[in-house]
Design a protein around this nucleic acid. Structure first.
Length: 270
DNA sequence: CCGGACTCCTGGGTGC
DNA sequence: TGCACCCAGGAGTCCG
């Protein structure tokens, strides 16, 4: 399940293979993704790729004929491949490149998206109301503190709200709150400024470490079937229900918050 | 505006 | 080994 570090790792993996390329054709095998992949996508045929960027978990590919906006949902991946390589089940969209390689979008659960927009991507409605990037200087404890006043939602839901800060998925939300020693269910409006400093720092650490890890284990994105080095970092709480806390030995608890599994140490986190 | 529920989908795990 | 069942999850959308 790609979280922000995996999306960043994907970007870094495919970027060298797409830079200075032209898209020579587009094949859509399964148009039913999060939003239908329409015929309009074929407009990128015969256009040059100028740049790749990431905003939140969206990959943005600038071409002569608009920006491709790609989201991996929770099971999506992008891979550079040789065209004669056999298709895998769920290889839904393919871009042929002037290099002779192809970029394949693969997504078993089809929660992802492949869109094309004429607008500057930051003005697209999916991107226009997003909060700051978690690793940017705009994101800090003060930002969280201000955004959380009068809010009754659980602090975990606050940090997972893309309007507040982008890129904090379910796994890293639990991990960051563990590092910050804050109970996930605590009302966001009742968390102090000081503790938001710790939460912001923990988010930066968890995501930053995961990106470094992705970078160091980055596989060749060409012709690999395996996933790149996702989740190699040691998780402290996520998925560790009933297992001992690494700091104090207390059994890790599982609690569903906002329909999502949430893990925490009842002794270390308050 | 806010909070919470619902929704899309398939693979993997479990229990019988 | 097969089958029914349940669950996971990003994030947009809807409802009260």
């Amino acid at each position: 399940m790609p979280e922000l570090p995996e999306v960043e790792t994907t970007l870094r993996g495919i970027e060298p293979h797409l830079r200075h390329q032209r898209i020579t054709s587009v094949v859509v095998r399964q148009p039913r993704l999060r939003w239908p992949v329409t015929e309009a996508l074929s407009r990128v045929k015969n256009s040059a790729i100028h740049s790749l960027h990431r905003r939140a978990k969206y990959l943005l590919i600038e071409t002569d004929h608009g920006h491709l906006i790609i989201h991996l949902g929770m099971s999506g991946s992008l891979r550079i491949s040789d065209p004669e390589r056999p298709l895998r089940k769920h290889d839904h969209v393919e871009f042929k490149l002037s290099s002779g390689k192809v970029l394949r979008y693969h997504d078993p659960r089809r929660f992802g998206a492949v869109l094309l927009t004429d607008e500057p991507p930051e003005q697209h409605k999916l991107l226009s109301n997003l909060g700051p990037e978690p690793l940017s200087a705009d994101f800090n404890g003060e930002h969280l503190f201000r955004a959380s006043r009068q809010r009754k939602i659980a602090v975990k839901n606050l940090i997972m709200d893309g309007h507040i800060v982008v890129g904090v998925g379910n796994i890293y939300a639990s991990e960051a709150l563990y590092l910050a020693a804050v109970r996930p269910a605590k009302a966001a409006g009742r968390v102090t400024a000081k503790r938001y400093d710790e939460i912001a720092a923990a988010i930066k650490k968890v995501l930053g470490d995961a990106i470094s890890m992705g970078g160091t284990t980055l596989r060749d994105f060409v012709n690999t079937d395996g996933e790149p080095g996702y989740f190699q970092q040691t998780l402290n709480v996520y998925g560790r229900k009933q297992q001992p806390c690494r700091q104090c030995g207390t059994a890790i608890k599982l609690k569903v918050i906002g329909q999502r599994s949430t893990f925490y140490c009842p002794r270390c986190q308050h």
